[in-house]
Computed example of a mutant assay.
Amino acid sequence: MLIPRWLQTLWHRPGATGRVPGAAPMALLPLLGSLLALPCAHALEFSYSNPFPDGPLAGVARSLRISGELVPGDTARLTELVRRKPADAWHALGRVELAISGGDTAEALLLADTLAALYPHTVTSADCAGACAIVWLAGAWRLLPAGRIGLQQAPASAPGKAPTDQLRNYFFKQGLPAPVYERWRANRTDGVYWLSGQEVNTTGTWPPYYFQRLSARCPPLDSTDESFHAVRRCAARLVISQKAFAFDKLLEGINDPWWNDNRDLLRNAPR
C-alpha cells in the first residue's frame, strides 16, 4: 500500500545519525485505515460566468455559478466574494446558476436567506434536491429549464440539519404550498420527494412577497404591449432597489469607490 508522505512521519524513529524510517507499528494500522477512509467535504465553488461581450462592462460577468457540496462557512465565503469586488458581484448576482450536489441544510438556509434579499434569478438545468432545492427557492425568479426539484429530509442524526420549524417557515415564505409540504413530510423516508410539474407550477416563478410588492408598486397588467413593458420596467427598478439595500448591508465597513458612487442611485431606483 502506498502511504502518503505526511503519514510516514507518524512512525519515523530518531536514530543515532538522524531520523531513520522504521516499520509501521501494527497498532497504528487500524488508525491509518480510518484516516484514509474519512470522507472529504469540499466547499462550494463560486465562479463568475457569461461576461458582457463589449461596451463599458466588457468582461464583467453576468451570472454566478454555484457548484459542489454545501458545508458550514460557505455563506461567509460568498459574502467575502461580494466584499472583495462589489462591482463584479453586483452584476453577477442577477443570475445565480445552481449545480449544488447536496450538503448541510442549515448552511443552505443561511445561504438562501442571503440570496433571497438580493432578488436574483435562480436557475438549475439538472436535478436539484435537498440543499440545492432550498437555495433554488430563494430566487425572486425561479427558472427550471430542465431537471427536477426535490425535497429531502436529512436523517435525524445528520450534522448540519436545519431545524424543522425554521425550514417550514422558510418554505412557506418562499411560496411552497402547504399541501406540498405536508405530502413531503408524510413521506417517512430519507429519500427525495420530487415535485411534480404541477407542484412546481403551483409553487410559482415568484415568491409571494415579490408578487405583493409588484402588485402594490407597479401598474396593472393588461393585454397591451405598453402595459407589459411598463410592468417589466417597474419590476426591474423594484429589484434593483431591494438588491441595493441588501448589498449595502453586505458591504458594511467596506470603502469601495464604485459602491460609494452608485449606492444612492441604485437604492432610489423605483422612486
Rank of each mutant, 00 (worst) to 15 (best):
L2G: 09
T9F: 12
L10F: 13
G15K: 00
A16L: 13
P21D: 01
A23Y: 03
M26Y: 06
P30D: 05
L31W: 12
G33I: 07
L36G: 15
L38Q: 15
P39W: 11
P51F: 01
F52G: 09
D54R: 10
G55R: 02
G55Q: 00
P56H: 07
P56V: 14
A61F: 02
R65T: 06
D74K: 04
P86T: 07
A89G: 02
L98E: 04
A99E: 06
S101P: 12
T105R: 00
A106V: 01
E107D: 05
L115M: 01
Y119E: 10
Y119R: 13
S125W: 03
A126D: 10
D127C: 00
A129F: 03
G130D: 07
A133R: 01
L137K: 03
W141L: 13
G147T: 08
L151A: 11
S157H: 11
S157A: 10
A158M: 00
A158S: 11
K161W: 04
T164L: 15
L167C: 10
K173M: 07
K173E: 09
Q174E: 07
L176F: 00
A178H: 04
A178D: 09
V180N: 13
Y181I: 03
R183I: 03
W184Q: 09
A186S: 13
A186K: 14
A186T: 05
T189K: 08
G197L: 08
G204Y: 00
Q212F: 07
R213P: 06
L214T: 11
S215Y: 09
R217S: 12
R217A: 09
P219Y: 04
P220E: 12
P220N: 15
S223K: 13
E226I: 10
C234Q: 08
A236D: 14
I240S: 14
F247A: 15
K249V: 14
L251G: 10
L251Y: 04
E252A: 15
G253K: 00
W258T: 07
W258S: 03
W259Q: 05
W259A: 04
N260Q: 12
N262L: 00
R263F: 04
R263N: 10
D264E: 12
D264C: 03
L265H: 12
N268Y: 03
A269E: 13
